[in-house]
């Protein structure tokens, strides 16, 4: 009887903690799309999702690139996606921070190199999607103090809050036609907070995950073209 009460107490405590820990904070998302050319994709054609790397500026988190690659290649209207690392290794050293083409004119010149064109053909690359942007924390406030109280029980008191903003843009190049097809952007804002009365309870606004989900959905629709959207 005593053991079952112990087990119940443990389970209840764990459930309460996990339940609240997974509670999302509030997130609002804004999406935008600019189309410069018609798009469409055959089932054998692929897109390469690349992060624009700079030697002296902030760069997109690899987790966001992985997320967009994964979500764009699954679900409805899924695309054949080549992730960043695989693509830059396959075309080394032409897509390194010092050497990557900065615009579609640079790309057009690059494709004139037969070796590079052949490598792109090997992977059936039709579109290159350049992603830029980051997630930033802003307006952090409050304090949270933790200590070990009498009896060896750790306890925290206080309140922490911060606002996060995820701001990403994807520029789509059509390699076959050597044109910029357009761009899609996804901006997510959210407030996270951690109130603590003995146990800290985090309410995390997953802005980056929201931005990724919306950008992937938009990208799939954008590349498939308006007629193909379910």
């Amino acid at each position: 009887m005593k053991n079952s009460r112990k087990a119940f107490t443990t389970l209840a405590a764990a459930c309460v903690f996990l339940g609240v820990a997974l509670m999302p904070g509030c997130v609002s998302t804004t999406m935008q799309q600019v189309r410069d050319a018609d798009t469409g994709i055959e089932s054998n054609e692929a897109i390469a999702v690349l992060g624009r790397k700079f030697l002296s500026r902030d760069e997109t988190e690899s987790g966001f690139l992985d997320c967009v690659a994964e979500k764009s290649s699954s679900g409805a209207n899924s695309l054949k996606v080549i992730p960043h690392e695989e693509f830059v290794d396959h075309l080394f050293p032409w897509f390194e921070p010092r050497t990557a083409p900065l615009d579609i004119v640079d790309m057009k010149n690059l494709v004139k190199n037969e070796t590079i064109a052949q490598r792109l053909d090997d992977k059936d690359v039709r579109y290159i999607v350049w992603i830029e942007g980051t997630t930033e924390r802003a307006e952090q406030g409050g304090t949270l103090n933790c200590a070990v109280a009498t009896g060896g029980v750790p306890a925290c008191f206080g309140f922490l809050s911060w606002e996060a903003e995820s701001n990403y843009e994807a520029i789509v190049w059509d390699i076959r036609r050597s044109v910029t097809a357009g761009k899609v952007s996804s901006e997510a804002r959210g407030m996270s907070f951690v109130p603590a009365i003995i146990i800290p309870i985090p309410f995390i606004a997953r802005t980056q995950a929201h931005a990724c989900t919306h950008m992937s959905k938009q990208l799939k629709q954008f590349i498939a073209g308006p007629a193909e959207v379910e």
């Binding site: 112990k6 107490t9 443990t10 405590a13 764990a14 903690f17 820990a21 933790c146 060896g152 029980v153 750790p154 306890a155 925290c156 003995i198 146990i199 800290p200």
Partner: peptide, 11 residues
């Protein structure tokens, strides 16, 4: 002890 362990885990 179990509650203490849960609080410890959370912290």
């Amino acid at each position: 002890a179990n509650v203490r362990a849960s609080i410890g885990l959370a912290l």
